[in-house]
Computed example of a mutant assay.
Amino acid sequence: MRNVTDRTSNPFGLRAPVDRSDPEDRAAVFGYGDANADFHVIGDYPGVHGGETTGVPFTETAAGLAVQDVARAVGFASGPRDDPVLENCFWSYVYLCSLPADEAPTDDDYADLERFFDAELRAINAHILLPVGARATDRVLREYTTQRRRYDDPLEMGALHASEIRGRGVLVVPIREPSEWADGDREAIVARLEALLASDYRQTKGVATTVG
């Protein structure tokens, strides 16, 4: 059994590489949860999926809480909504830094932080990657599978939602942005996760990835 670390928040001690926030604001929302997890949920940035006040991904905002609700439905999350206990699941963002209200990261901003996201993802070394929204899904498909060319640009997340895409030693299960969920989307991702948990999902892991 792996024992990467027992730290729940920012388990690998990352430091915020930039700080564009007000002095009293949180500089970044670091990865959170079970660092030995088999399931890694990957959001976009704090302004969309939350955590600028709590420091915990997938809190505060309606979109973030919708993702958290799915995690609770399948047994990954329990306890307070702003400080949940995660089991077999890790949460993080493609872009971890907080930004001023109503400001979104630019393409250059995302590029600047790629190394932090990649290092944490490889350190967690999960079997199942669950990118939320088009930005995170595009990033994961480009870097951790050979399948990106098979899909439209921009990605049609309605069609990809809750599907299974084989990657390089991982299984990718995209999640449509919760603000765009249609009837049945929540039930579809819950059902997919329940089916994976009931299966021998660890066989999805091929050659292990390493940090570096």
Results as ranks from 00 to 15, higher is better:
152 D>R: 15
50 G>V: 12
39 F>E: 03
114 E>C: 10
126 A>T: 06
139 R>I: 11
114 E>L: 14
142 R>G: 04
171 L>P: 00
178 P>T: 11
1 M>K: 05
38 D>L: 01
67 V>I: 15
131 P>A: 08
35 A>L: 12
138 D>M: 03
196 L>Y: 03
80 P>D: 04
51 G>I: 02
178 P>H: 03
17 P>S: 04
181 W>G: 06
115 R>K: 13
129 L>Y: 11
192 R>F: 12
68 Q>L: 13
132 V>F: 06
191 A>D: 13
78 S>E: 06
177 E>H: 15
212 G>S: 02
212 G>D: 07
126 A>D: 06
147 Q>F: 01
1 M>W: 03
33 G>C: 05
64 G>D: 06
2 R>Q: 08
139 R>H: 11
37 A>W: 00
49 H>Y: 05
60 E>W: 13
167 G>K: 04
98 S>G: 11
161 H>W: 05
103 E>L: 06
58 F>G: 09
22 D>F: 14
3 N>C: 12
108 D>Q: 15
143 E>M: 12
58 F>V: 04
75 G>W: 01
162 A>R: 00
156 E>T: 09
194 E>Q: 07
102 D>Q: 14
133 G>H: 03
155 L>Y: 03
13 G>T: 01
169 G>A: 04
169 G>I: 06
72 R>S: 15
92 S>N: 13
97 C>K: 00
45 Y>M: 04
149 R>F: 10
101 A>F: 11
162 A>L: 08
203 Q>F: 04
34 D>N: 00
27 A>V: 01
